[in-house]
């Protein structure tokens, strides 16, 4: 009898906290998303799906925010993951100083979004910042920009900062994945006269499949949740052009006191992440049977 209860006892602390902090509140915010409420007034007005309808049909900023998140996700998958993989492959060789290199590329990931935002805002400063000064130095003055003030550039400027910060994560995961691949298949391929590309394509990639799954998953979640770097660099401006779902949710909830709409935004976020990740969870747990 006791052995049946025992695992639950070990799980209990984690489970209680998990239910209190994540499960119950997120379900409750789903409930709140069906109301119109300012967060304080005693009466909440039930409006059904109106908040969602409003977001998708009327709100002028929501589509921008959604599209920014999707662009961000795409950019992260292609650039961040690509650069991470490329660097991991380069560092995986028996290379002198690879710990140093790894440390350098990983280092920005240790910083907070706020720190990264402060460093890069200063780099982008229109009059004294690094980018414009360097452009002036090489005679490209006409290229200088108020990088964060131009809707054309602002999101990409913020993304570049995030790329600098974030590349370390896929990098370490890929290095971990690569280090678990044994040498033998490469030796065999070498003897069979396979080219470098062939051995990469036919050996490395398939054996990295599981690493890819985890990197893709974490990169996508990261892209959907992006918040502090945007908040601190642009605050969603100029003209709401860099607003992302998280920042919009924050502003709707905590500046305009539209709790219902803010909750609806956060649930759109949840749904998107779920659509993306359920296959991942399914895959991971299915493999666990083995």
């Amino acid at each position: 009898m006791f052995t049946k209860v025992k695992p639950w006892l070990y799980l209990l602390p984690a489970l209680i906290i998990y239910l209190t902090v994540i499960c119950f509140p997120s379900l409750y915010s789903l409930y709140l998303s069906f109301f119109e409420w300012n967060g304080v007034a005693p009466d909440r007005k039930f409006v059904g799906l109106d908040n969602y309808v409003y977001l998708f049909t009327k709100d002028t900023v929501f589509p921008t925010a959604l599209s920014n998140n999707l662009q961000w996700m795409l950019g992260s998958l292609v650039l961040m993951m690509g650069l991470g993989l490329a660097l991991a492959l380069m560092l995986n060789k028996r290379l002198k100083g690879r710990t140093w290199f790894r440390g350098i590329f990983y280092f920005p990931y240790v910083l907070s979004g706020i720190v990264v935002a402060m460093v890069w805002t200063w780099m982008y400063n229109p009059t004294q910042g690094f980018f414009n000064k360097v452009l002036e130095l090489v005679g490209l003055e006409s290229w200088t920009q108020a990088w964060l003030a131009e809707p054309k550039f602002a999101l990409y400027a913020v993304f570049l900062a995030a790329l600098w910060q974030g590349v370390g994560q896929p990098l370490v995961l890929f290095i971990a994945g690569l280090s678990s691949i044994p040498d033998d298949p490469y030796e065999a391929a070498f003897i069979d006269g396979a080219s470098k590309f062939q051995s990469f394509y036919y050996i490395t990639l398939p054996l990295l499949r599981e690493t890819f799954v985890i990197v893709v998953a974490t990169t996508m979640i990261g892209a959907m949740k992006v918040y502090d770097i945007v908040y601190a660099m642009t605050g969603g401006g100029p003209a709401e052009s860099t607003q992302v779902l998280s920042s919009l949710m924050y502003y709707q909830t905590f500046r305009y006191a539209n709790i219902g709409i803010g909750s609806a935004i956060s649930w759109v976020l949840v749904l998107i992440v779920m659509i993306v990740l359920i296959p991942y969870v399914y895959y991971t747990t299915k493999r666990s049977h083995v």
Partner: peptide, 14 residues
């Protein structure tokens, strides 16, 4: 694992 899918934002008000 599902917890990793829930963005913090969705829990803040509650």
């Amino acid at each position: 694992l599902i917890g990793m899918m829930i963005p913090m934002q969705a829990t803040l008000v509650p």
